[in-house]
Simulated scan of single mutants.
Amino acid sequence: MKRDLPTAPVAACQASCPPADEDLLAECPFAYTEPMPSPAALRLEQPASSRAMQTVIHGRRVLRNILDRRDPRPMVVVGPCSIHDPVAGRDYAQRLKQLADELADSLYLVMRVYFEKPRSCTGWKGLINDPHLDASCRIADGMREARRFLLDVADLGLPAATEVLDPLSPQYLGELLSWAAIGARTAESQIHREIASALPMPIGFKNGTDGGLDAAVNAIVAASRPHSFLGLDASGQVAIVRTQGNRLGHAVLRGGGGKPNYDAASVAQARNALQKAGLVPSIVVDCSHGNSSKDHARQKQVLQDVVTQWQAGEAAIVGVMIESFIEAGNQPLLADPAQLRYGCSITDACVSWSDTETMLREAAQALRQLR
């Protein structure tokens, strides 16, 4: 699915280099730019309703209260590994909203809405980067689609969560998010720690892909402090961003290095590391990734173990993450996207909707019995 680059920018580059000097011509960058609407322009084009903003603000408030131990319910960040089909994503959101209302006495459900996918090498990089699934990389279209999707989810009354990957995306979407994550590959990144210090919602920092927790702990500390850095303002102007720090950072245990870290001993180790750094020990367990050994069906086992820890009085675990979609498993991205199975992930494998309902209802019932 290779797309030919436009010839005009290449011609312009060639015109700027002396044609007789092939060495200089070789130094011309094989890159070009195209216009992107500013964050302010996109917000004006797709404004948030009062209901949507009430959902976001309420979600942030509840999650803050969970982290501050003023709300005893665990958070559950649950949803597709990534959003590739907005129609199926909206279908999932409507189902999740009904389940969230049903279980609201015991669990606080937040929809996982991931638009950007970090890649170790190559692959589809998410709805924002390639919304048409054809390597055309119409990023402006993708950002519009992502914002429209978040607005629809918020209008349902369902809070949303995502991973912050591109440093500019929060200016376009951040106002619509109640929770965000910094991934295992970017927790060591200075710019991501600085961005987290500016965001107005709780931020979960994942442990490293090797399973180590140091990067996440250091990131939580760094993000809690004020920073000044180069960024983008709402008009699209490069600006100096000055932050006050985000005190709502917490750790996300996702396994790594070939082994899980959701068990009681690993949680105790993480709790002690956070306390040693002078932090409130708040931990979210990611039931997928290294903790499930990339087997989506094992997420149920991880959740059951976490519930057992709650029953034993483990207060450091404030929530879980689950990768879930309408259909179980995953599928490869096809040359013809119309041939993809409806409601099935094209990135990491997910548990089915029916299994999601069972898992969360059982967890809620176990928590009710603790009262």
Rank of each mutant, 00 (worst) to 15 (best):
E323R: 03
S82N: 15
P337W: 08
N261Q: 01
I240Y: 06
T347E: 00
S282G: 10
Y108L: 08
A223F: 05
G245V: 01
P37L: 05
H192I: 02
A328T: 12
G89R: 10
T55I: 07
Q331A: 14
P6M: 15
N291K: 03
G183T: 13
V110T: 04
A135F: 11
A335E: 15
R193H: 09
L333V: 04
P159E: 06
G123C: 02
E175N: 10
E34M: 11
A40S: 14
Q190C: 02
L173N: 11
A251Q: 10
F149R: 13
V62P: 03
A93V: 04
R298A: 13
E145I: 14
A26F: 04
A181D: 07
G256N: 02
K2A: 10
G236P: 03
R64S: 11
P131A: 10
L109E: 01
P35R: 10
C344F: 07
S106C: 06
L176C: 09
Y32Q: 07
R43A: 14
A270L: 12
S197P: 03
L103S: 06
T356E: 04
P170S: 05
L176V: 07
A315E: 14
D141Y: 12
D71V: 07
I66L: 14
E45D: 13
C28N: 00
V285M: 13
A312W: 08
V62H: 06
A328H: 15
V284R: 06
V10K: 15
I317P: 15
A146Q: 04
L177P: 11
P226M: 14
G79D: 05
I191Q: 13
A11C: 07
R144W: 04
S228K: 12
A161Y: 03
E102D: 14
R144Q: 10
L199Q: 06
S82I: 15
C17I: 13
D295C: 12
L168Q: 07
R112T: 05
L165D: 05
W310C: 00
Q46A: 14
N65F: 11
R112W: 02
P29T: 11
G126W: 02
A196H: 04
A264N: 09
V285L: 14
A297Q: 13
K300V: 11
T55G: 10
A277W: 02
Y262P: 01
P39D: 02
V320N: 00
R298P: 05
G278K: 12
R242K: 14
S38L: 04
L99N: 08
K294I: 08
G183L: 05
C13I: 08
I346C: 01
A234E: 05
N129Y: 00
Q369M: 11
S352L: 02
S352M: 03
D210Q: 12
H227P: 04
I128D: 02
D233H: 00
M75A: 08
I139N: 05
V320R: 00
D263V: 13
R51P: 04
S16A: 11
A265I: 15
Y262R: 01
Y342N: 00
A366N: 01
P18Y: 00
M359A: 03
A222G: 08
P9S: 14
Q237E: 06
G290Q: 01
P18E: 03
L25P: 03
D134S: 03
N207Q: 12
